[in-house]
Simulated scan of single mutants.
Amino acid sequence: MQMMSPPQGIMVPQGLLGSLSYLASLNEVVIHQHLDLLECCGNMRPFTLNITDNMNQHIFQLHRPYRYVGSCLWCCCLQEMDIQSPPGIIIGSVKQIWTCWSPKYQVSDAQGNPVFMINGECCYCACCTDIIFQVSDANSGVEVGRIIKQWGGCREIFGGVNDFRVQFPVEMDLQKKALLLTATFLIDFVYFERNNNNN
């Protein structure tokens, strides 16, 4: 994924690269992702994902350790991912919370304090419809955004292309927007890349 250079005149929070400030004026980000899983481990494999701007400068670096992706009964293999911006500086993490049915994730800041809870639908494999993950403030429980997996039609069935919309208030803290945006990649990797394991 590439992000555009930041608009002029927007101040950048300390510790974040300038290109990240582009999020400050947005209330929605659209992600068009094409991911090829060539390894035999498929979506269980560890990865380091670099997200750059149009000047090829790193904005985020995402680190996910090896984790088994299987039945919800495997509570010892919950998914997690660290988020760095710039690379080497951890700004937060995303961790799966064990539930019997529907997906649930906790997004935390650099100190490990919960920022968001992300709750998915119990049927996240439905065809011909969008799939919504509700984002709530971890303290108040109030919904503050959504991660929407958009139905992609035939190209989604036959290829490894996924489209997401990440929605949040325009006035949301820039770093929180960044954490929410990057959480989308782990959700995509865990729930929507399974059909590509044999590519």
Results as ranks from 00 to 15, higher is better:
residue 25 S to V: 09
residue 56 N to F: 00
residue 45 R to Y: 02
residue 39 E to M: 07
residue 21 S to N: 10
residue 56 N to R: 01
residue 63 H to N: 15
residue 45 R to C: 11
residue 48 T to R: 05
residue 20 L to M: 14
residue 60 F to T: 03
residue 46 P to M: 07
residue 30 V to D: 11
residue 36 D to K: 12
residue 21 S to K: 09
residue 64 R to K: 15
residue 58 H to K: 06
residue 52 T to C: 01
residue 20 L to I: 15
residue 42 G to T: 08
residue 65 P to T: 10
residue 36 D to Y: 06
residue 20 L to D: 11
residue 26 L to I: 09
residue 59 I to G: 03
residue 59 I to T: 05
residue 58 H to I: 00
residue 48 T to Q: 07
residue 42 G to N: 10
residue 43 N to S: 13
residue 39 E to S: 13
residue 35 L to Y: 15
residue 17 L to K: 03
residue 26 L to E: 13
residue 17 L to D: 04
residue 53 D to M: 05
residue 40 C to E: 14
residue 24 A to H: 03
residue 34 H to W: 05
residue 33 Q to R: 13
residue 15 G to D: 00
residue 34 H to S: 10
residue 66 Y to C: 12
residue 47 F to Y: 15
residue 36 D to Q: 14
residue 21 S to I: 05
residue 15 G to Q: 01
residue 35 L to M: 15
residue 28 E to I: 05
residue 28 E to H: 07
residue 60 F to R: 00
residue 48 T to H: 01
residue 41 C to F: 13
residue 59 I to W: 01
residue 27 N to V: 03
residue 26 L to W: 11
residue 21 S to E: 05
residue 17 L to V: 12
residue 23 L to Q: 05
residue 57 Q to Y: 03
residue 33 Q to E: 15
residue 59 I to A: 05
residue 27 N to S: 13
residue 57 Q to V: 03
residue 40 C to H: 10
residue 41 C to H: 12
residue 64 R to M: 03
residue 24 A to D: 11
residue 21 S to F: 12
residue 41 C to Y: 13
residue 53 D to H: 04
residue 28 E to L: 06
